[in-house]
Design a protein around this nucleic acid. Sequence first.
DNA 1: AATATTAATGTGTTCGAACACATTTTATAA
DNA 2: TTATAAAATGTGTTCGAACACATTAATATT
Lengths: 343, 343
Amino acid sequence: MDRKKYTIKDIAQLAGVSKGTVDRVLHKRGKVSKGAEQSVRLVLEQIDYQPNPIARNLKHNKLYRICVLLPNPKEDLYWIPAHDGLLEAAKEYKSFGVTVKPYFYHPYDQVSFRQACEKAVESSPDALLAATTIAIESLDIFKHCKEKNILLAFFNNHVRAKQDRIFIGQDLHQSGRIAAQLLSKLVKRNAILAVVHFDKEQHMQLKEDGFRSYFLEQHISDTIISKSFLTGSDTDVSAEINSFLVENDEISGVFVTNSKAHIFARHCKKDIVLIGYDLLEPNIELLKNGKIDFLIHQKPKRQAYLGVGFLAEHFLFGKPISNEYLLPIDIISSENVSYHLDV
Amino acid sequence: MDRKKYTIKDIAQLAGVSKGTVDRVLHKRGKVSKGAEQSVRLVLEQIDYQPNPIARNLKHNKLYRICVLLPNPKEDLYWIPAHDGLLEAAKEYKSFGVTVKPYFYHPYDQVSFRQACEKAVESSPDALLAATTIAIESLDIFKHCKEKNILLAFFNNHVRAKQDRIFIGQDLHQSGRIAAQLLSKLVKRNAILAVVHFDKEQHMQLKEDGFRSYFLEQHISDTIISKSFLTGSDTDVSAEINSFLVENDEISGVFVTNSKAHIFARHCKKDIVLIGYDLLEPNIELLKNGKIDFLIHQKPKRQAYLGVGFLAEHFLFGKPISNEYLLPIDIISSENVSYHLDV
DNA sequence: AATATTAATGTGTTCGAACACATTTTATAA
DNA sequence: TTATAAAATGTGTTCGAACACATTAATATT
């Protein structure tokens, strides 16, 4: 386990050649005789040489720039922790010569996204890390990045997985299933349950599908109704929620598919089991006083941090990046929420 | 956010001195005139200099050795993932010149622990990372490490926290509380619940205390009974468990305080809510078929991996290590278990 | 056989920090 | 004032990998 660390010089000595020759063999630069190449390869086989990533990087000595596209945290509080994650990663990798620059766009404005995107691409960074709340397949961001040789990665919101697309995030279908399992354990059989959406987001259908698939698979015959609300002006929604609850007064469990569980929870009786997403302040408050039973943690901070981290260590130390990194789906109750507030 | 990266040479130029002088100021080696020191400090204040950790480490160019004390995974399967975590960390940091060497001891044998410990200390590593299933306060491991200037850190099993002791692990009291909350949500009120211990382990009392504290705080008047089993020969325990279940046939929820929930679960009716610890194969199997409802994940693999990682990055890049790193307490059900199997 | 051409190999420099060592400047004693 | 010690400052080398460049050996051409 603790063999000596071999250097190129060591290999050269062992093979009876100069370090230049070893270098050419290692990097396949040619201009090496068969005999020399063989003797170097022989040594390499015997010693399992691993280049010192520190020395390598020192030589490269490049400043790496990572641009990050994300919705403006001022428009949607959900993105605050993601932004924090970026700042933390920026701090961590700064002394290694990695800079992180965020570009904000308006969550549901395609034009704003496109502008931010163009601006970021124009600056020719080494990598572009993007959280997209809008459909981007139609845009030519992929083409532009390929042209300019910008490494492209996505976090938080899945962009259809293909070979060469990197994604850091969660399986939303599966998180819907987890919500379903939790609810099904907490309510009596033959209950009436509701899936509640607030506003329109790409991913909520995935969550509802996952939710329903669990009940189908388990052959649980609870009734599941779906309902959507739009949060334009607050009073509006309150009235809507109240009338919904009056009309459906036998509901014993609710699954809110995004971070807005707190809006719904305020109108609920305590005996309704409620499951939502994300550790926003108002959600946590309601989790602690028992109006919300569980929150599913999408870990936006960690996603952002890992996104930057993977890219940085790839550039710095040549670590490979896997196409898809799915974070564990954490079940949060009032008793373990504290561990996740700053992680 | 993306200012230039300053080097010592840059500072020297800006301050109008040589790099040697800058170096002396930075490292407080003295032999610098007041005037020179001032002009260097002035520059330093303006540019927020951060030394390139890569270059620094390349110069140091030391081989760091980390010895790890842990129970032999062959004696207790719980430690297999911890060992995996060590191997993974060893692989990750090998090319940086960090070597990891495990020393196994028999889980409950103080003599065996002491021997392993002495052997490890004798080899004068840079750090000693220990998972202790036995009381060690009486041993002079602390003194020896201090004498030989070995950085000492613990993972998995808490050693009383003091200023200069590093611990990576979980809050066991709190994990007991989480088990309590889950159980209380899943059973009807005024239920009869059991806390079940297998064998004798230091930490199980902490978990039971946490468990009971939750019910006390919430003023839930469920009945909680405690029971211990010793797993000498398997048939023995089976009989004991069966008779316990017959005698207490009104139990509707059980909390097993270590990784041996599977032993108990096999004898249970499915309608008893069961919560245990750790993702051992047999536990996972029972989680999937519904006999176990939730497992609390102590993440031994991650603990070991992080333990090595913290030490390595401390040595390599001078990252500070916090005294206590408490991992989040994960609630695992059959629907999110897959994410944790290899993490 | 002498020269040109290409292949093969070796040498030297760079990256930034750290530190050993050499040199210059200033202060002190004879 | 000169010699000498002490303080201050500058220069050079090292770490390992990468690559530019110089040098040597082998082959081809006339």
